[in-house]
Structures are given as C-alpha cells and as structure tokens.
Design a protein around this nucleic acid. Sequence first.
DNA 1: TATTGTTATACTCTATAACTATA
DNA 2: TATAGTTATAGAGTATAACAATA
Lengths: 139, 139
Amino acid sequence: MTGIDAMLLARRMDRLMRRLNAAFHQRAEPLDTDKVGPLGGMVIMALADLGPTPVSALTAELGRDKSQMTRLIQMLERKGYVVRSSHPEDKRVSVMALTERGEAFTAQMRVILAEVAGDLLGSLSEGERAAFMESLGKI
Amino acid sequence: MTGIDAMLLARRMDRLMRRLNAAFHQRAEPLDTDKVGPLGGMVIMALADLGPTPVSALTAELGRDKSQMTRLIQMLERKGYVVRSSHPEDKRVSVMALTERGEAFTAQMRVILAEVAGDLLGSLSEGERAAFMESLGKI
DNA sequence: TATTGTTATACTCTATAACTATA
DNA sequence: TATAGTTATAGAGTATAACAATA
C-alpha cells in the first residue's frame, strides 16, 4: 500500500519530463551549434560532475546502453568536447575527460539549467523545493 | 535564487525516468503482446483517466506532436484498443474512447504501475511520498 | 572465461512542413 | 482565415546481439 495513484504518478512524471525537455531545448538549441544534442549534453554534465571517468562507469551513471555510449563519445570526441585516454593499469578501459571546450560548454549549460529549474520550480516554496530534491535523491 | 543545483536536478530527473521506464518495461513488455509500446500505453492511460476525448485534447494532455498522435491512434485502433467517432457538432474533430480491450489493458497496467511505484518510492516515508506527489502536481 | 568497448542493425520516438476538410 | 487531423520524411534515442582485445 503506497497510498498513491501510480497511474497518476506515471502521467505526471511523463508530463514533467516533457516540459523540462521542451523548456531546456528551446533555450539550449540555439547555443548548441555543434549539435551535441540532449544526450551529448547529459554525458558532458555527468563528466563535469564526476571528473575523468571510465566509459563503463559513465554508462552505469547515465543508465544507457554501452553501445549507445560508444557512439555518443565518438561524436563528442570528434567535435572536441571530450578526450579519451587508456587506463594505465587496464588496457581494456578508456577514461573520458572534458576538454576546455567541454568545460566551457558546461558553464553555458549551468546557466540555462538554472533558468529552467527556476521557472519550473517557481510554483514551489523554498521548503517544498528542498524536499523535492531530497526525495529525488533518495529514490 | 532557487537554492538548488539545477544540474544535479536535471541528472536526478533523468536517472529517475530511466529507472522508472526500465522497471516498467521489464514487467510490461511480456504482457504487451500486441506491441502497443510505451507511448501507446501512455495514450491508453490518459484515455482511462479522461474518458472520451478529442484527439487535440489528448495531444495537449500528453504534450506530444499531433502527427505523432495520429499514427499512435491509428495503431491502437487497428489493434482494437480504442475507437474513434466524429464529433456531432464539429465534423473536424474525432473523439477517442477505450474499447473493452483497452479497459482490460488499463487494468493490467494499473497493477504493474502500482508495483513499480511501490518499489521506486519504497525508500520514502508515507509523508514524503505524499509531498512528492503534491509537488509533482504543482510543477 | 569474464569484462571492456566496438560494430551492425532494427525499432521507437520526435520534429517539421505541407496537405485536406471542415469551420 | 483559422483549426482538426493526416501524410511524408528525416533525425535522434534505444535495445540486442555478435565481435575483438585484454584480463
């Protein structure tokens, strides 16, 4: 017994994600001159938070498929946002890191995301916002 | 000043959606013998909540593109989950409704969604869950 | 044998624009 | 002229399996 309407939850989550994506892309697309796309942006954000990271760890962090990650990384590398280096102790793993260009892109994204989050969470009180973030972290 | 880390929020939302989708599809896919797919499921759920609804209203509710909705509805109609009827007062609009088969599918989905929601929200207290749902509704 | 990452492939979802039929 | 819905099409994201290199 959760006491909540699971179907309503699913529909609300879906709506929220749709709106978040729409709001974000509307502002981010004009700046995304290299077309790294939403998922490319997610990879860059994850690297910004995590620092240099093996592909496998990045894949787990983002919850995507490893083959998808391969293609995404190749694209980002080609466009100069990330670099790969092979792990000194295990030649199978390659470690991803942001380039300066990747860092600059991250800074831009932070600004946009803050705006979008501000708009989206504007209807919540300070306390509700904090509680929402905390619950999101626990889930 | 929202007082929250917007990039962390974005990454957490993305992760939550990925996990929710993965958990749901894992359980729903074996039952989805007709391959209505995730979005087909969303359409059916929306109709279950809203009752008979014009295509345009459904499109707005789900936040998808109207051309996407057309194809989705044609697929669901072909597979016997929904029926269309033209609006008596405006011949341009067609009104969607669930068939018995659609209703039966909804009942199955409710069970699965309740399980998934239970798993996912299991780490929150009753109060946190209610607050989370409420915030989701306000946003 | 197991794991890291790559390639190939097929499918679903998304976005845009041009079109029709009614209003 | 505006709105509801359709068609066509291209692009992005996803899932799976088979594979090579290294452990």
